[in-house]
Write a protein that binds this DNA or RNA. Structure first.
Lengths: 112, 112
DNA sequence: CAAATACTTAGGCATTGACCTAACTATTGT
DNA sequence: ACAATAGTTAGGTCAATGCCTAAGTATTTG
């Protein structure tokens, strides 16, 4: 139970940075090396590496080194876990029609 | 574009803490006051308040004060935005994996 | 083997985050 | 009015983040 929560924390934390989200997006279209991933960013390589480490610690990505090139790729599971958590919350509040209803009414009032 | 990204960052950041996720869970079953929300946690009130502020800044919740009681409630939109972002990523790599799958199947067929 | 390439590690600095205690303000109940 | 209640603000500690430059380690490549 506890470890699941910690894992979720790390995943959400990893997702909380635009650079890291961009890296995930990039990896969505296939594996890539450190320098390929770093290229779009105006940042010193060691700084960028830290972001990759955060991603790897969260297990959103994994990497393997072949020769002098380290290749990163996505690991789907943690992203799924995060999505599930959010989805569960959504289901919970959607059940409560009250709140949603009030919310929509307020939106209407704001638009008028 | 940029503001959307910043908003997402704040939402994911807010979600990266177990206390804050627990608060959201609590609010999923209805609005609640500061002290109701704080009660399960072994934490000084000012520390807990900071978490509520993080949640409010991320717009995952909003609050109104009536008399001396401040009541919090969920705001669904940011959670939906976060879920959408993840979902979009998932779709992206799922497509790719399908393509890879097709490719592998073709290879198999060629071998036959 | 020497030079270029692709990372890696070390160390430093500024900011932010998470927690605390103590003291304060604004209601409300008696 | 006074005490209790419900939050709030101020200020301090300590660790973690995000960025940097400089220097180091492996691997190719010429």
């Amino acid at each position: 139970m506890k470890s699941r929560s910690q894992a979720l924390s790390k995943v959400f934390y990893a997702l909380s940075d635009p650079t890291r989200r961009a890296v995930l997006k990039h990896l969505g279209s296939g594996p890539a090396s450190v320098s390929e991933l770093a290229q779009p960013f105006d940042m010193a390589l060691p700084s960028f590496l830290q972001h990759l480490q955060v991603l790897e610690i969260s297990k959103l990505v994994r990497s393997k080194k072949a020769g002098r090139i380290r290749t990163y790729q996505l690991t789907p599971d943690p992203l799924l876990a995060a999505e599930s958590w959010i989805s569960a919350q959504r289901t919970s509040w959607e059940k409560r029609l009250n709140q949603l209803d009030n919310y929509l009414k307020e939106m209407k009032e704001k638009k008028l």
